[in-house]
């Protein structure tokens, strides 16, 4: 098990180098002379262009630029915003916990709804529950989360007026207020997660319920509960954990729009301002942090996978 964790963590190193390189070379996507574009395009003054070029070291060869940028990034310095002049690292440090709490809340919605739904559906394939859940989950994976968010706002904030339409309260200042503000975004974001999770779990469970070892369990005199909850679920959880790791990436992407709609002061709006204004250090910083977070969480899922699967754990 120790080897397994060490191996997974070690495998991250080349991946991180490659990923950080990709993040860095995003700047080469800027059409034409990057320094002109970043300095404001046609309206850029020569001084401003020189300033940008100087600040981003655009005169140097790409690999040298990358080395410098990576060196700083490793020390926690992601540069300064070209416009606000604030430290990108500091900006992100303030916003990341908010975004992560939204991801966690959405994932919680996904697990709390998706797992029981998947189990119920798998217990009687094509039964009433299964049919209803199939309809619901197909809808759930098809509805754009930003549209769902808007509809939720219309229903609960505009019409019913039971929940606030936007804004954010830090958890430690006012837990109840945090909950009030996070419910709608979490549901909007988590619906897709719940739907897709329940479909995957259902499929995995049905596969497992068809195996020979489940037949053995029936032959031993196991009850439906023993079969599904003990024999099948533990084995079905193994592929589902991998799915969960993939979902984290999708949920992080989703937060960008959701935070924009609910005006939550997380990474999303910050990132979008950066994108609209060609603020390269901000874009690079945010993307890097998103990738790092997604990578760490999926590595965690990988390790959980190993823990669940005796073939990996016990050699």
């Amino acid at each position: 098990m120790g080897t397994l964790i060490a191996r997974r963590l070690l495998a991250l190193v080349p991946l991180l180098i490659l990923v950080s390189f990709f993040v860095f070379i995003l700047i080469t996507l800027v059409p034409g002379d990057a320094s002109v574009e970043l300095a404001g395009g046609e309206n850029a003054t020569p001084e401003r262009i020189a300033e940008v070029r100087q600040e981003l070291h655009l005169d140097e060869p790409v690999f040298q630029q990358y080395g410098r940028w990576l060196g700083n990034a490793v020390q926690g310095d992601l540069g300064h915003s070209l416009y606000a002049r604030t430290s990108v690292s500091q900006d992100i440090a303030e916003r990341l916990p908010i975004t992560l709490s939204l991801v966690a809340a959405a994932l919680l919605v996904g697990l709390l709804v998706g797992v029981p739904l998947g189990i119920l559906a798998a217990m009687r394939p094509a039964g009433a529950v299964d049919k209803a859940s199939r309809f619901g989950t197909t809808l759930g994976i098809s509805i754009p989360e930003y549209w769902l968010a808007i509809i939720l706002v219309v229903l609960f904030a505009v019409d019913l007026r039971v929940l606030p339409p936007s804004g954010y309260v830090p958890f430690f200042e006012d837990p109840l207020g945090w909950l009030e503000h996070i419910v709608l975004p979490a549901v909007a974001l988590g619906t897709w997660s719940a739907a897709s999770l329940s479909r995957q779990l259902r499929a995995a469970l049905i596969d497992v319920l068809d195996t020979n070892y489940v037949r053995t369990a029936w032959a031993k005199g196991g009850s439906t509960r023993v079969i599904v909850v003990k024999h099948a679920l533990k084995n079905a959880a193994i592929p589902v954990v991998t799915i969960l790791a993939l979902q984290i990436g999708f949920l992080m992407g989703g937060t960008v729009i959701i935070e924009e709609i609910f005006t939550i002061p997380g990474m999303g709006p910050y990132f979008l301002r950066g994108v609209i204004s060609f603020d390269v250090p901000v874009i690079q910083g945010v993307v890097l942090v998103f990738v790092l977070a997604a990578l760490l969480l999926s590595t965690l899922a990988d390790i959980t996978y190993g823990f669940l699967n005796p073939k990996v754990r016990v050699q």
Binding site: L15, L18, V19, F22, L26, I27, L29, V30, P31, G249, F250, M252, G253, G254, V256, I257, F271, L272, V275, I276, F278, V280, I283, V286, V287, F290, V291, A294, L295, S298
Partner: peptide
């Protein structure tokens, strides 16, 4: 693997924005 590590929408926004 490295490309798949990026949250898809985040990457799309960054690329589309910079282009």
């Amino acid at each position: 693997d490295a490309m798949l590590a990026f949250p898809p929408l985040v990457l799309a926004i960054a690329v589309a924005g910079l282009l």
